[in-house]
Write a protein that binds this DNA or RNA. Structure first.
Lengths: 120, 120, 120, 120
DNA sequence: GTGGTCTAGACCACA
DNA sequence: GTGGTCTAGACCACA
C-alpha cells in the first residue's frame, strides 16, 4: 500500500507523505479512518520510526490527518481536501502553459494533444 | 541576464542551469555562441566557481552546450533542442492529466480552464 | 455539556478540565453541586476512565473541586474562585502588553482596538 | 543570546524558535544577517544538532529565515514580518477579552488596568 | 563548512 | 499502546 523506492531522489518521508495524500484524496482511506501507527508502519516498511514520524507531522501540518494523542492518527475526509487540491492542479497546469508559451508552443497545440489522449 | 535568488529553495547551480536552458531554447543565446567562462560568470554573479562549473557540467550532460578545450563553452542551436523539449512539456502535461483523473477531474474541465486563461 | 473535539491539538484531559473550570466559574455548576462520577462521565463521553480521572485530579489540584471519599466530587463555589481567576486574566493581559511593547506597539493602540471591538 | 531552560515545559526546539523570532522581530538580528550554523549553535548550547535543525526548519516554514544551501541560514527583515505579528497579538488580545467576558469582566475594567500599568 | 536526511535507541506524556 | 521529543552519530548534496 505504501511503496518506498530508496533509489528515488525524493526523500523517504516525502514519498510516504505523497502516498498518503493520494490515498486520502481518492477516498481509499476514508474520513476519520485510523492510519497505521508510527511504529507499526515503520516495522512494515523497514524504515526508522523517526522518518515515519516526520511524514505524519507533514501530513498533519498540511491538513490531511489529525492526531489524537495516545490514540493515533486519523484521516481527514476527502471532501474537505479536494477543492484545494483541484486548485493546486490548475495552478500547476497554468505554470506549465506559461513554460510552453515561452518556447512558442500555443495553448491550442496543448489542448489538441489532451483531446487526443482522452480517446485512449 | 542570469538572476540568482538566494531566497529560492532550489540550489544555485540549478537556477543557473535552468536560466541558460531557457535563454538557449528561446534563441536569445544563438547556436555556437560562446557563453561566459566559468571564472568570469562566477565573478559577475559573486558565486563560487565550483557552482558555475557544476551548472555547466549539467548543461553539457543535457546537451545544451558543448565544450571546446582551451576555447570555452558554446551553445547548441535551439532548433536542435526544441523538439525534445516540446516532448518533455507534453510528457509533463500528460502526467498532470493523470493526476487530475485520479481525483475525478475530467480533461474537459482542464481544457475549459486553459481556454479561459487564453483570453486573458 | 462537556464537548470533546478529537481534532483539537490539546489532550482530552485538558479539554475536560478547561470545560469544567468554565462551567464552575460561570456558576452553571453551583457551589457544592455534585459533578458526574469518573465512571459515568467516561461512559457518556466514550472516553477512557483514566483520562477523566486525570482531569478531576487536575481540577482538585487547582482548587476547583473537592473529593469526598465514598460520595463523589463536588464543585467549589464560583465566588471563591473568581478573584484568583480575574487576577490570572489580568496577568496574561500584562504579559501580552509586554510582548506588544517589545515590537514597539503602544498600549494606546491596543486599547483603541479593544474599544472598537466593544461596539461590535 | 539564546537562553535554554531544560525545566521549561515547552520543548527545546520551540524555545529556540521563539527566541529567534523575537530577536528578528525586534531587529536585533538584521535583514539578511547570517544566524549561527546548526552545528555551531548546537555546540554552543550543548544541544543536539537535530534539535537546532528542527528549530531552524520551523523558523523557515514560518517565514522568519531563509536557507541558502551550503551557505547557511539568514534572517528575513523585521519590516516584512511585523504586520503579521501585530495582527497575531491583536488576535490573542481579542481571545483574552472573550475569556474575560465569559466571567462577566468588562472591557472597561481591562482597559482601566492597562492604562494604570502604563504609568508605571 | 553548511544544511538535509536517516538510523538506532531512549524517555516522556497521554489514553 | 500511541505519538512527541531528544541524543548520538552517519552520510549526502551544495558551495
Amino acid at each position: 500500500m505504501i511503496p518506498i523506492d530508496l533509489m528515488d531522489a525524493r526523500p523517504i518521508y516525502e514519498q510516504v507523505t505523497e502516498r498518503f495524500k493520494l490515498l486520502i484524496l481518492r477516498g481509499i482511506i476514508k474520513a476519520d479512518e485510523k492510519i497505521p501507527s508510527v511504529r507499526n508502519l515503520a516495522v512494515e516498511l523497514s524504515i526508522n520510526p523517526n522518518t515515519i514520524q516526520r511524514a505524519y507531522a507533514e501530513l498533519e501540518k498540511q491538513g490531511y490527518i489529525y492526531t489524537v494523542k495516545g490514540k493515533g492518527n486519523f484521516a481527514v475526509g476527502a471532501e474537505k481536501l479536494l477543492p484545494a487540491y483541484r486548485e493546486e492542479i490548475l495552478q500547476r497546469l497554468r505554470e506549465l502553459c506559461k513554460q510552453a508559451e515561452e518556447i512558442g508552443m500555443t495553448r491550442e497545440e496543448m489542448i489538441s494533444h489532451m483531446a487526443e489522449w482522452r480517446s485512449l
